[in-house]
């Protein structure tokens, strides 16, 4: 049976992890490679590295970081943040990334999704959608939820699937950072609209929230950052808890 995936997300700036991470017993908590290895050992099913480097000039550092991650990590990982060209994606995939996620660049020019899917296959193209609930439905936002686009999130997801996106990373900006649980209604609305896997993101605060998103929607994976980074929810205990709720979860073997 296909398992539900648990995905820690690491924010990267200038090749270093951004948020202080203080529970794992590692020497350099700012080193994304050391952190990633610790998450693999904990049983993470996949990792997402989100590059929030402010300046374009410093972006090449990301490719060498991806090379280092690929040497050390034997589970799939996605790289996202500011990716906007076929060449940029080629460099990251050659460096060892399994998937890349695109967001604003695809909103500016949806054809980018088709170009990437044709060049590299849908399986490695993740479309990240950040949205907020408004009176008439969910609308897509960019720049961390600050900039409205007016685009309907459900229609955008369907269009992205038609253009060749292989997976959707769905973040509810209404839930992100609240620790009050994932956006189950939104996630299910997207799952009803598309036939590609959906990763739910935003709102994880307790183990029960992960059970909720998997039991109340068809989400394929749940992504979180701070609850993992600060050790509030250790992945082994989370996976044990979800297994007890009869949710199909991978038992990592070391």
């Amino acid at each position: 049976m296909l398992k539900k995936r648990i995905i820690p997300c690491l924010d990267i700036r200038d090749g270093r992890t951004v948020k202080g991470i203080n529970f794992l017993d590692i020497r350099d908590a700012g080193d994304p490679v050391a952190l990633a290895k610790a998450y693999v050992a904990q049983g993470a099913d996949e990792l997402v590295f989100l590059d929030i480097t402010a300046t374009v000039e410093k972006r090449p550092a990301l490719v060498s970081l991806v090379e280092r991650i690929s040497v050390e990590i034997n589970i799939p990982f996605t790289v996202g943040g500011g990716i906007n060209s076929v060449e940029g994606v080629a460099a990251l995939l050659q460096a060892g990334a399994d998937k890349i996620s695109i967001n604003s660049a695809a909103i500016r020019r949806p054809e980018l999704i088709r170009e990437l899917a044709q060049n590299f296959g849908s399986q490695c193209i993740v479309l990240a959608i950040d949205c907020r609930k408004e009176a008439d439905g969910w609308r897509v936002f960019t720049h961390g939820g600050r900039t409205p686009t007016g685009i309907d999130a459900l229609a955008w997801a369907a269009q992205a699937e038609a253009l060749g996106a292989g997976e959707i990373l769905l973040t509810s900006m209404d839930h992100d950072g609240t620790k009050q649980g994932f956006a189950t209604e939104l996630t299910q609305a997207i799952c009803d609209r598309v036939n590609i896997p959906v990763i739910a993101s935003g709102g994880a605060g307790r183990r029960e929230h992960f059970a909720e998103i998997f039991l109340q929607s068809n989400a394929d994976a749940a992504l979180a950052a701070s609850v993992f980074h600060f050790g509030e929810i250790p992945i082994p205990s989370l996976k044990q808890f979800l297994t007890q709720q009869n949710i199909p979860i991978r038992e990592a073997r070391l």
Binding site: S122, E167, I196, P197, A221
Partner: peptide, 10 residues
């Protein structure tokens, strides 16, 4: 069901 088949399976 969803296609591609992405993830861990036994």
């Amino acid at each position: 069901d969803k296609v591609p088949h992405i993830g861990w399976n036994n």
